[in-house]
């Protein structure tokens, strides 16, 4: 009971970081609509492409046009999350490293990793509540949207996917300790993640050898598993095992971030920045 209360107080402290980022994101109104338009336009291009590709009832590896209508919309919204995490975690970390804010944050009695995570979660909440909801509503009215097969499992799987990407973004952010300008690493990983997590094309459409390699990597756990659950493509047993694998990846990546952060900071303090 005491532990539970202690945990709760700590948790409340971290949610305050989320709140700060959430409010911060709210304050750019013109920006809000421009980004919204931009993402909506990408969804529209992708929609027309798939409409032409899957014309006349054509299917590719089991995907018909009606699946792709939902797929492109959910993937388009997920790109907000990818953007938020690469900006709010990786870019934020190298910004803080170069401005010296990172060192200041090390002096506070909070975990830097959790502080960065929770800030990003605040941003994601904003993206989902405002941009995501707006885009999906527009899409449902304009073109149509299939509701998730099992909303609860989808949300759990999506949350795990976000946690996995947060772990990767944190690791990418750590490169700032070792490379003078890590922007190149950042751009390259963000583009690869968009591709390899399935936000562009369902992964099953990749050549067979690519698919079998991707089975051993965490990328498909970020988006492809959640969208498969959304579309009802997985059986109960598959869902259970997918969720377990997701949880394992999330755990491994966060622990890796934790350990590498420790060694990076030690290097920083020995060399004096």
């Amino acid at each position: 009971m005491v532990y539970l209360r202690k945990f709760w107080t700590r948790f409340r402290i971290y949610t305050r970081f989320s709140k700060i980022r959430f409010i911060d994101r709210l304050s750019y109104r013109a920006h809000f609509f421009l980004v919204l338009t931009e993402y909506l336009l990408i969804i529209i291009v992708n929609y027309f492409l798939w409409k032409a590709i899957l014309a006349d009832g054509r299917t590719i590896r089991g995907y018909a046009l009606e699946d792709m209508v939902t797929y492109v919309a959910v993937a388009g919204v997920f790109r907000f999350i990818i953007n938020e995490l690469s900006g709010g975690i990786s870019r934020e970390m190298s910004g803080q490293y170069h401005s010296g804010e990172l060192i200041m944050n090390l002096l506070k009695p909070v975990s830097y990793q959790l502080y960065i995570y929770f800030r990003a979660f605040g941003g994601i909440l904003f993206q989902m509540l405002f941009r995501g909801a707006t885009v999906l509503t527009i899409w449902a009215l304009l073109v149509g949207l299939t509701p998730p097969d099992s909303a609860a499992t989808f949300i759990v799987s999506l949350a795990l996917g976000i946690l996995i990407y947060a772990g990767i973004a944190f690791l990418v952010g750590l490169t700032t300790f070792h490379i003078e300008n890590n922007a190149g690493v950042l751009f390259a990983t963000t583009a690869s993640i968009e591709l390899l997590s399935g936000t562009l094309i369902p992964l099953v459409m990749f050549p067979g050898w690519v698919v079998s390699i991707l089975d051993y990597l965490p990328f498909k756990m970020i988006f492809y598993i959640p969208i498969q659950i959304y579309l009802g493509q997985l059986g109960v047993q598959e869902i259970v095992s997918a969720l377990i694998v997701q949880a394992i990846w999330a755990f491994i990546l966060s622990i890796a971030g934790f350990l590498l952060f420790k060694t990076s900071v030690r290097k920083l303090t020995i060399q004096g920045g």
């Binding site: 492409l49 590709i53 590719i60 751009f187 390259a188 591709l195 459409m205």
Partner: peptide, 30 residues
């Protein structure tokens, strides 16, 4: 310069990958 190149490439290459993969499955688009 290298970073600029990676940036330009990473924003533009996805559509090429898209085309290449799709045409593994279908003979034509429209």
């Amino acid at each position: 310069i290298l970073i600029q190149m990676v940036f330009a490439l990473s924003t533009q290459i996805t559509s090429l990958v898209f085309i290449v993969i799709i045409f593994n499955h279908i003979p034509d688009i429209n």
